[in-house]
């Protein structure tokens, strides 16, 4: 349903349903039957969802779960013992790397260049995030929203990967596949490409007049 200028959006109605609507929505509902019906539908759909029957596991998973728990706890014991040795090795390695880097200052410069590139990609991407957030707040036709959905899902996936890289860099996570700086840059470039596509979807009708590949961030 394309909201007419004066009708609240579906998002507004859902907020109202959840007890966090605005007074404007409440006022509007008092005098608009169409919106009251639409609101009623959101209640009904929620009840229908809650009434869906519960899905049960197809077989008893406990033996596998117990085995996994046991494997995990013995692995943890082993790694606790190994960690002490690992710490010593890490210190030695760090010293070695430090010498190596000081030795080859060109290498250091290359690393700094990568870091700078990464930072600039990150900043660009954050600017686009702001712009996309602003656009997202507007009411939009269904076709546009449909096109955006899979793109947002991809963005979610990329952010998950970036998060896990950040975690593994800080030593908190146990990401098995730590990316190289080049790959990380590629990931951020993917993110930018995706955001760019999303902006194109947002601006699609205005394609002729606005050149959105330049001068972004001015919104």
């Amino acid at each position: 349903m394309k909201p007419a200028p004066n009708h609240p959006t579906l998002e507004d109605l859902l907020d109202h349903r959840d007890g966090r609507g605005t007074t404007a929505t409440t006022k509007h509902l008092a005098s608009c039957e169409a919106c009251r019906e639409r609101l009623e539908e959101t209640y009904q759909l929620r009840s229908q969802l809650r009434a869906l029957s519960s899905l049960a596991p197809p077989r008893d998973r406990w033996p596998a779960v117990r085995a996994a728990i046991e494997a995990e706890s013995s692995r943890r014991r082993r790694s606790l013992i190994a960690r002490a040795g690992l710490a010593a090795a890490a210190i030695a390695l760090f010293a070695l790397v430090a010498v190596f880097i000081v030795d080859r200052s060109s290498e250091l410069a290359a690393r700094q260049a990568l870091e700078a590139q990464l930072n600039s990609l990150r900043e660009q991407s954050e600017r686009l995030d702001d712009e996309l957030r602003a656009l997202q707040r507007r009411a939009m036709p269904t076709w546009r929203a449909e096109l955006l959905l899979p793109l947002e899902d991809d963005l979610f996936a990329i952010d998950g990967e970036i998060d896990s890289q950040v975690l593994s860099a800080s030593g908190e996570g146990t990401s098995p596949n730590r990316l190289t700086p080049d790959e990380l840059i590629e990931l951020w470039q993917d993110r930018l490409t995706l955001q760019d596509t999303m902006l194109q979807v947002h601006y699609a009708p205005a394609v002729v007049e606005t050149s959105f590949t330049t001068d972004r961030g001015s919104l």
Partner: peptide
């Protein structure tokens, strides 16, 4: 939060 809200509305729609 706005991501979550817009997804909910989209789902209902």
């Amino acid at each position: 939060v706005s991501f979550s809200k817009s997804r909910l509305a989209r789902a209902h729609d």
